[in-house]
Simulated scan of single mutants.
Amino acid sequence: MFFEMGGCFHEETLRMTAANKALRDKSDSIRSNLSKINAAVVRFNLNYNGGGTMYAHEGNRNEGTYPFYINQYVKMTLGSDNKPNEAGYDKSLAEINRKLEKLRHAKAYDFDNSEKSRALYQVDKRTEEMKLYVEEMMESIQGLTSVLQVKDQSAVYILNIISNSIPSVDIDPTDEIKGLIPKGWHILEGATGDAAQAKGDLNKDGITDIVAIIEGPPITKEVPSRALIIALGNEDGTYTNSITADKAVLKNDEGGVFGDPFDSITIDRGSVLLKFYGGSNWRWYYSYRFRFQDNDWYLIGATLGSYFNGDRTMDNADEEDYNLLTGDYIIQTVDENGNVITETGNRGARKLIPLKDFIAGEKQFLD
């Protein structure tokens, strides 16, 4: 069906370009590069997923729809509304490059993540072949951009078609920033079994950044060291280490009877939120907020709380909350009758503590 419909659009395109050989040659070249990209995508998907006729069928469907896309491109090129769009062109191309960079780091799907499975399903071989097909995509896209030449609306239209055709892949966060993690270290596994990491935009550039808690190798008679690493994303899909704070994370044995005090790490409202929880009958919790400003990372907020586990919870704990940007604070205490007493005030603006100097569990910000 798609090929029959495509044939109709192709005939119309031939009529529209009958008196414009340059445009016909250009549209034919665009179609040729789209087909090359499509073929590389199909082969990438087959290796990434370990087979599946659905990817071949999807490739055939794409081939059948390309005459329609080329038809629309020609109409846009000949139309009066085809205005220059350099910003849109550069943005679309950057998105394509970001996706391709992610594909370069992808690994072939492993059905049960075992040595036997890797050998049986040729995971390593498939991964290497995937990289070759990504290179083919990149070469064809480079050839296509050289054909497009003009950064206008019609060119953006073609780039968006390419961007939408590039497959999405799951990347282990360790793979994305593994080059930034010291040898022998690893991303901490939280209490839920998930990696202690989060993604979001921390420096307002529209690119995804990664924060993670990393843990060092075991040391004789000592628990492993921990650190907070913040990796800022680049336009090409790679990451740059912005900071590794080696005193910002409590160790495994610093949670008291409760055990490992690490609670969570998230990205919230453009800042890093790091939480700890520990104690025994008396429970305590800390929450720290860090933000990138003035070309550095700073502690901008802190919440400290405690309560007796026998008759209270975090909902009615003694708690101190400090906004270190404004100086505002809220101190909540609970008397022996269970009444909540709240004190608010302002300590005045003070010099912020850089993340590199921050020590988890200490009240430096109150000095």
Rank of each mutant, 00 (worst) to 15 (best):
residue 85 N to C: 13
residue 84 P to T: 06
residue 56 A to M: 07
residue 109 Y to K: 09
residue 81 D to W: 14
residue 76 M to Y: 05
residue 146 S to A: 12
residue 131 K to F: 01
residue 125 K to N: 15
residue 79 G to Y: 08
residue 85 N to V: 06
residue 86 E to R: 10
residue 137 M to V: 01
residue 149 Q to T: 07
residue 105 H to F: 13
residue 85 N to F: 11
residue 92 S to K: 01
residue 158 I to A: 04
residue 140 S to E: 01
residue 81 D to L: 12
residue 143 G to F: 00
residue 159 L to M: 08
residue 113 N to Y: 08
residue 139 E to K: 07
residue 149 Q to M: 07
residue 115 E to D: 10
residue 64 G to R: 12
residue 113 N to F: 07
residue 140 S to Y: 01
residue 41 V to H: 00
residue 127 T to D: 05
residue 154 S to W: 01
residue 72 Q to D: 13
residue 102 K to W: 03
residue 45 N to F: 06
residue 156 V to N: 03
residue 131 K to M: 04
residue 156 V to Y: 01
residue 63 E to L: 15
residue 133 Y to G: 00
residue 77 T to V: 15
residue 138 M to D: 08
residue 154 S to F: 02
residue 107 K to Q: 06
residue 125 K to V: 14
residue 149 Q to N: 09
residue 102 K to T: 03
residue 100 L to M: 10
residue 111 F to I: 15
residue 114 S to F: 15
residue 123 V to I: 15
residue 87 A to S: 13
residue 135 E to Y: 07
residue 141 I to Q: 02
residue 116 K to N: 12
residue 104 R to Q: 11
residue 69 Y to Q: 15
residue 103 L to S: 00
residue 110 D to K: 05
residue 120 L to C: 15
residue 96 I to E: 00
residue 54 M to P: 11
residue 92 S to W: 00
residue 117 S to A: 15
residue 127 T to V: 05
residue 128 E to S: 13
residue 52 G to H: 05
residue 101 E to T: 09
residue 53 T to F: 12
residue 75 K to M: 12
residue 119 A to D: 15
residue 103 L to E: 01
residue 87 A to E: 15
residue 116 K to W: 11
residue 87 A to I: 10
residue 89 Y to E: 05
residue 45 N to K: 13
residue 85 N to P: 14
residue 148 L to E: 04
residue 141 I to H: 03
